[in-house]
Computed example of a mutant assay.
Amino acid sequence: MNTLRLVEIMNEVLPKGVVNVVLGEAEIGNAISSHANINKVIFTGSTPTGQKIMANASNTLKRLTLELGGNDAAIVLPGADIGSIAEGIFNTAFINMGQTCAALKRLYVHESQYEEMCQKLADIAASQVVGNGLESTTTFGPIQNANQYRLVTELVEDAVNNGGRVVSGGKASSGKGYFYPPTIVADVSNGTRVVDEEQFGPVLPITSYSTVEQAVAMANDCKFGLGGSVWGSDLELASTVAKQLECGTVWINNHSEVLPNAPFGGSKMSGLGIEFGLKGLLEYTQLQVIHSKK
């Protein structure tokens, strides 16, 4: 509704036809992405839908910007101040209840601080008030739809069945609605569904590592490459590790911050093209070179 209202306001001052809104289901998207007279399509959503758009657009070779799924990894470096970074990690993992493309979705922590981090995050999660967002005491809202609610439940159950340890949450709230508490799952690693798949919901898996090289390898062992982050007190080491992560954006001691002046885009199965910044604006242009012999 906010997008519709924005377009209404824009159309109060813009010439007719400059900005239009078309609403509909998949058939509308199919028509747009395959239409011969549409030169550019920008899409934000799932990787399978992005692949369908790319296939449709191949007939006309139209330009695409695709911001697709992500399974963002974060690495906590040895010696990090757990007390000072735990809240930032929690907030960026559970922004919009984890239902954000560039939310922190996998956490790798050095074995020397693993239990401390698990407990800190569990304590923060346990302090949340899950409920109706219209109530002033609520700090944590619902999952957006039934399918995603079932997926989150399924991923947590699968993790537990494969040796995962739920240190906070893990059980759907009673009553009406798709309410699921912020859930911290420990003792899982790559190869477990909750780590390998984008949960897009209120669950954060935490994995222990022995060496930084191992952490980087596990973080990169993923078909997605939207964002990633490195957390620690040694900023030089953090910068070195950040450059090794296979993703479009890397944050240091932060995550999920998307700025209008900074280019943003994914690698691997997380999409193609750039949004925001000068590079993002240039995505809407067609380069033409004119050679004139003097």
Rank of each mutant, 00 (worst) to 15 (best):
Asn2Arg: 10
Asn2Leu: 11
Asn2Trp: 06
Asn2Asp: 10
Leu4Ala: 10
Ile9His: 09
Leu14Ala: 12
Gly17Asn: 08
Ala26Asn: 13
Glu27Gln: 12
Ser34Trp: 07
Ser34Asn: 12
Ile42Arg: 07
Phe43His: 11
Gly45Asp: 07
Ser46Val: 03
Pro48Asn: 10
Asn56Arg: 13
Thr65Trp: 14
Asp72Trp: 03
Asp72Glu: 06
Ala80Gly: 03
Asp81Pro: 06
Ile82Met: 09
Ile85Asp: 04
Asn91Trp: 04
Ile95Asp: 02
Thr100His: 05
Cys101Val: 11
Ala102Asp: 11
Val109Trp: 08
His110Val: 11
Tyr114Gln: 01
Met117Ser: 04
Cys118Arg: 02
Lys120Met: 13
Leu121Pro: 01
Ala122Leu: 08
Asp123Arg: 03
Asp123Glu: 15
Ile124Ala: 02
Gln128Thr: 01
Val130Asp: 00
Val130Gln: 00
Gly133Ala: 02
Leu134Asn: 05
Thr139Leu: 00
Asn145Lys: 02
Asn147Pro: 03
Asn147Met: 13
Val160Asn: 01
Asn162Val: 04
Asn162Arg: 13
Gly164Ser: 03
Arg165Asp: 08
Gly169Cys: 00
Gly170Arg: 01
Ser174Ile: 00
Ser174Pro: 03
Lys176Thr: 00
Pro181Ile: 00
Thr183Gly: 00
Ile184His: 01
Ile184Val: 04
Val188Ile: 06
Asn190Pro: 04
Asn190Cys: 12
Arg193Phe: 05
Leu204Thr: 02
Tyr209Ser: 03
Tyr209Gly: 04
Glu213Gly: 06
Ala217Thr: 15
Lys223Phe: 14
Phe224Asp: 09
Gly225Leu: 05
Gly227Met: 05
Gly227Ala: 15
Gly232Leu: 08
Leu237Met: 15
Leu237Val: 13
Val241Gln: 11
Leu245Cys: 09
Glu246Cys: 14
Cys247Pro: 07
Gly248Ala: 12
Gly248Pro: 03
Val250Ile: 08
Ile252Asn: 03
Ile252Val: 08
His255Val: 06
His255Ser: 07
Ser256Glu: 10
Val258Tyr: 10
Val258Glu: 11
Asn261Gln: 15
Ala262Ile: 15
Gly265Met: 09
Ser270Val: 02
Leu272Ile: 14
Ile274Arg: 15
Gly277Asn: 11
Gly277Ala: 10
Gly277Asp: 07
Lys279Thr: 12
Ile290Tyr: 05
His291Phe: 11
Lys294Tyr: 12
Lys294Ala: 15
